[in-house]
Design a protein around this nucleic acid. Sequence first.
DNA 1: TTTGGATAGTTGCATAACTAACTATATGCC
DNA 2: GGCATATAGTTAGTTATGCAACTATCCAAA
Lengths: 146, 146
Amino acid sequence: MPNNQFKRGELYSFMTGMASTAVARRLQKNFKQAGIEITIEQWSVLYHLWKQDGLSQQELCKQSFRDKPSITRLVDNLEKLKLVKRVPSKADRRINLVYLTEASQTLQHETMAVASETLNEALNGVSASDIEMCKAVLQKVYDNLK
Amino acid sequence: MPNNQFKRGELYSFMTGMASTAVARRLQKNFKQAGIEITIEQWSVLYHLWKQDGLSQQELCKQSFRDKPSITRLVDNLEKLKLVKRVPSKADRRINLVYLTEASQTLQHETMAVASETLNEALNGVSASDIEMCKAVLQKVYDNLK
DNA sequence: TTTGGATAGTTGCATAACTAACTATATGCC
DNA sequence: GGCATATAGTTAGTTATGCAACTATCCAAA
C-alpha cells in the first residue's frame, strides 16, 4: 500500500466533509433568515426540476446522487408542502413524473440568490484558479469512487 | 452582489458535498467488507478518543463539529456496543468523561488501515500539490463560515 | 401466452442530524 | 447564604439517510 498523501489529522476532516457540511449548514441558516422554509435537501431536488421539469423519481435519484427511498420521501414532503406534484406517466405506469407547482416556480430566483450569496461568503478570499483546482480534485475523487 | 465564481451547475455539487458524501459512503462500505460493524459517525467519535482518551462530551462536540444532542446519542450507541464508557467527572458532576474500552482500543489500527486505503482509492491520480491546494481551499471555506 | 427477469417506486427499520425545551450542577455577585 | 446566570448533558419532534424487502409494471424469450 502506498503512503497516503494525507497526514493522519487531515484525513479526518476530508473523510467527514467538514467544509461541505459547514456550507450546507450556512445555506440552511440563510434560507431560514430569508423566510424560505425548505430544507437544503428539498432545495436540491427542486434545483434539478428547475433545470428540467417533469423528471421521473429515478432520474432525480441519479441527478441528486440519492437512493430511491430518499427520493420517495423527499418528494412526499415536497408534495405535502405543495411544491411538487406526482403525475403517473401514461407511457409507463411504473413511472411517476414529478412536476413543479406555481409556488415552487417562484421560489427559484429567491433561493438561487441566497445560494449565490452563501457561496460568496464561503469562497471569500479564494482565487478563481484555486477554486478551479479544487473543483477538479473533488470531481476526480467522485469519479474515482463511482 | 459580486458575481459568484461558480457557474450555476457547479454550485450544486459544492453545496451538497458530492465528493465527501461519496468518500463517506465508500468508507462505510469498506468498513463493512472488513467486518467492522460501526458507522462512520461512530468511527469519527472514536477517532478523537484515540487521539486523547477521556474527553468530555462537550469536547467531543467541538472536535467532531457536532451539537450536543448528536454526541449524546452517538455516545449512547457506542456505549450499547461496549466501545466507550461514560464516567462522571469527580471535579464537576455536570461532566461525563468518555473512555475507550479494550474492544475499541483494538479497533484503532484496523479502522485506520481501512480509512487510509479508502483515501488512496479516492485520491488515486491526484498529485500531492493539488491535494495541498484543495485542502487549503476547504480549510479556508470552513474558516470563512465559522 | 406465460413465465422469469428487470425496472420504478414504496415501506419498515436503524442511525443520525438540527432545533427547542428541559434538568442538574457550578459559579459569581449581592 | 441566596439568587441569577452560565454550562453540561438529556429528551422530544421533525427530517433525512442507507439497507432490505416488498408491490406493481414492463418486456422478452421459451
